[in-house]
Amino acid sequence: MSHALRVRGISHAYGLTDSLRGVDLDVAPGELVSLLGPSGCGKSTLLRVIAGLERAATGTITIGDALVDDGAGVHVPPERRPVGLVFQDFALFPHLTVADNVGFGLPRATRAARTHEMLELVALSDAGGRLPHELSGGEQQRVALARALAPEPRVLLLDEPFSGLDASGRHRVREETRAILRASGTASVLVTHDGDEAMQLCDRLVLMQAGAPVQEGTPDEICFAPATHFVARFFGDTDCHVAEARAGRVVTPFGSLATELRDGPVDLVVRHRALAISPANAHDATAVTVARTRLVGCQRVVSVITETPGAPWTLLADPLLPLARDQRLQVVLRPELVHIFAAS
């Protein structure tokens, strides 16, 4: 058995709107996979279908060796699937103590021992007798994690588990979560709309759009070889420029770039990091004029215009670098951070 979770051709609809259209997904034991996409792309629905909280219209789901859904006769109810689910709002039982929450899904015989073990894993051994509302957001998140992991699920599903937390503590909680998931060795699927979060936590990302995956791969693959315009624009700030492909080259104000696209109009998706200020008189640099500068979160964001007519380009500069409007700069374009797609 080589998969903890295997999803094949899953479709699902809310009323008349398709929410999932033929999704495939494989997760290996111990692997951390992120389902990533804008809200409404179907990622949370996929998680609920895997958990058995929604019924798929077509397709099969296998968890470990067990077929749990075939879109027709077989639909194992959620309580009999070896999955754990961590909810966006944690969904802790407000009337139960932390220990009772963690022990909820455990058989009576092993409940006390396993609960103790799980509370230790999430560093909440002293909080067992407290009620959920007495804990901080980060602690509640750890209780939710411990509760979902306690019955030793084959797959742990996490639905935007950090979005309920303050921005300040989020980074630390993510690191703790990553450590706990690694320690438990459970295959996990994390749903998020935050690219940074997915990259920080997961080995593999699956980008979804309009109910279907558009690309999957390691963070590097997705960042440096985006399959579509949508994927390229999903991570971080980009500019979009129109250009022409001719005989395998695309001409830009900063020189021409190689492309495999056929001749015709193309879109350039340019990361803000693609343009870099170079020392004056560098041989491959191009002269531009500063149109506007502004400080955004301790980064100097600079709009520049080229001598050829067209939309301004954005670059990120050292915040200490003194820059004024109409100042002339020499810049170079790094082609690895420019993605070329046939015009849509």
């Binding site: 909280l53 959620p78 309580e79 689910l85 909810f87 966006q88 899904g105």
Partner: peptide, 15 residues
Amino acid sequence: VGIRLDDAARTLGAG
């Protein structure tokens, strides 16, 4: 009573 509590209980094995 949030519907997520039901979902949570179900995924924890409660019928």
